[in-house]
Amino acid sequence: MKWLDKVAEASSRKVAQRSSRRGLLKGLGGLLVGSAAFPLLPVARAAEGEKLGAPVDPGDPMQCEYWRYCAIDGFLCSCCGGTQNTCPPGTEMSPITWIGTCRNPADGRNYIISYNDCCGKTSCGNCLCTRNESDRPIYRPDKANDINWCLGTKSATYNCSTAIVVGVALDK
């Protein structure tokens, strides 16, 4: 049960009713299955000197179940004029933020994801997505998604959230 799904659903219902695409609602419903939506592929570890193939970043950044969003809470910038790693035009990216550790189902690696907020305009309102894997209360600010992370920006007004790959976390 994801109550924010219902909030998001209610806010987007009018749009969905007028649209032939039901992708948004389908995507929100997908939250319930979360990471199970991706097959967990066998991990091909690159040994020393082993030739690596092209990196793979699977999934749709406009959908909440996209692997990078495992600890996100907010409006997806991909639905707001930006992308999963860029802010919408005319906003400002927060230089400090919280991080999550999310597993890329295509390569089996855990990545550190930085959820930089985009700031300076009112709430985007599209594609609300809340996933709380390993989220902690605000006494652990580094892992807390309840904070408006528009800190260190000219305006603290929150617009949307990105999910930027910072690097590979510890192999498991």
Partner: peptide, 15 residues
Amino acid sequence: MHPEGYNGSHKDGGP
């Protein structure tokens, strides 16, 4: 309270 809790269900509410 909610049943079938998991890592990330702590803000989900309950029945």
